[in-house]
Computed example of a mutant assay.
Amino acid sequence: MPDQRTLILGGARSGKSIAAERRLASEPEVLYVATGGDDSGDAEWAERVAKHQARRPATWGLAETIELVPLLDAAGPPLLIDCLTLWLSRTMDALDIWSDLGCAGLVEDRIADLAEAWSRTPRLVVAVSNDIGSGVVPADPGTRLFRDLMGRLNTTISLASDQVLWTIAGRTLPLT
């Protein structure tokens, strides 16, 4: 199937999620995979989530998880994964990387597992991810590690994708 695996990159609030939703709009059933987790009483985060929910068709399912490999390995409707950036931060949290930055190899193993599942998935899948590496070099080691791992994650998934798109200011361009 051509363009079975699509990665949509861009900066914050660039229109990535809307572009992903549009790519799957004609599908009768989609599983929206939210990687953001609990809002923990954060009103601004809850508002963002509500806007995403309001845009999605009522026929779309929802999975709130960072366990992407089992979803990618299973048969089923198309997946919209929003987003890999939150997947990375929550994976780093789950592995307690912030307290021992030297354990970053554990995250790299998870990235490799994700890329393998992405490559073999039987499903139509669109994932959204932030490109955060074009700015200044972060001042602290933890943020530098996150930026570097984000770059590795995006590169790894990009190279395993059939199509990669760049979204900026609401415009989506193919990367070839």
Rank of each mutant, 00 (worst) to 15 (best):
A75V: 01
G61F: 00
A117Y: 05
K51Y: 11
L80F: 05
D93L: 15
R123P: 05
D73N: 15
D96E: 15
T156F: 01
Y32L: 10
L153D: 03
W60H: 10
V137N: 01
L95D: 11
K51N: 14
L84G: 01
N130T: 13
S161P: 04
D73F: 06
V136C: 13
W87T: 07
E29L: 10
I111S: 08
L159M: 09
M92L: 13
L68G: 10
G37S: 13
L86V: 08
W60D: 02
T156K: 02
R147M: 11
D82L: 08
T155G: 00
G41C: 12
G133S: 14
L165S: 02
W166N: 08
P141W: 03
L88K: 02
G37D: 10
Q53K: 15
L95G: 04
D140Q: 09
D42Q: 05
T155L: 14
R110A: 12
R123L: 06
P78E: 10
V107L: 11
I132L: 15
V107H: 04
P28S: 01
L101Q: 09
P78Y: 00
C103W: 00
G151C: 06
G102N: 07
D162T: 08
D96M: 12
A25W: 07
V69M: 06
A75E: 14
E67Y: 05
S134Y: 13
Y32C: 07
E64W: 11
E29F: 07
L124C: 08
V107G: 08
G105H: 15
F146R: 07
A160N: 09
T35V: 05
T156L: 00
R56V: 11
G105P: 11
A139R: 09
G105N: 14
A127W: 02
R144P: 01
R90H: 15
P78N: 13
E116V: 06
D113N: 13
D73M: 11
N154T: 07
R152T: 01
T59W: 06
L84K: 00
L68W: 04
A58D: 11
R22S: 13
T35D: 00
S26C: 12
V125C: 03
D73Q: 15
L24C: 01
R110N: 00
R152F: 03
I81R: 03
R123I: 05
P70F: 05
D38C: 12
S158Q: 09
R147C: 12
R90V: 11
T155E: 12
L101P: 06
L80K: 03
D140Y: 06
E108A: 10
A94Y: 03
D113P: 02
W45T: 02
L145I: 06
V107S: 03
I111L: 07
D73T: 12
L101F: 10
E27Y: 07
G37C: 11
D109C: 12
R56S: 13
M150F: 04
E44P: 10
R23H: 08
L153A: 01
V128Q: 07
R144I: 04
A75R: 06
G135E: 08
W118Y: 07
H52N: 08
L80R: 02
T143G: 04
W98H: 15
P122V: 10
T156P: 00
W118M: 04
L145N: 01
A127C: 12
R110H: 10
G41V: 11
E44A: 15
L165E: 14
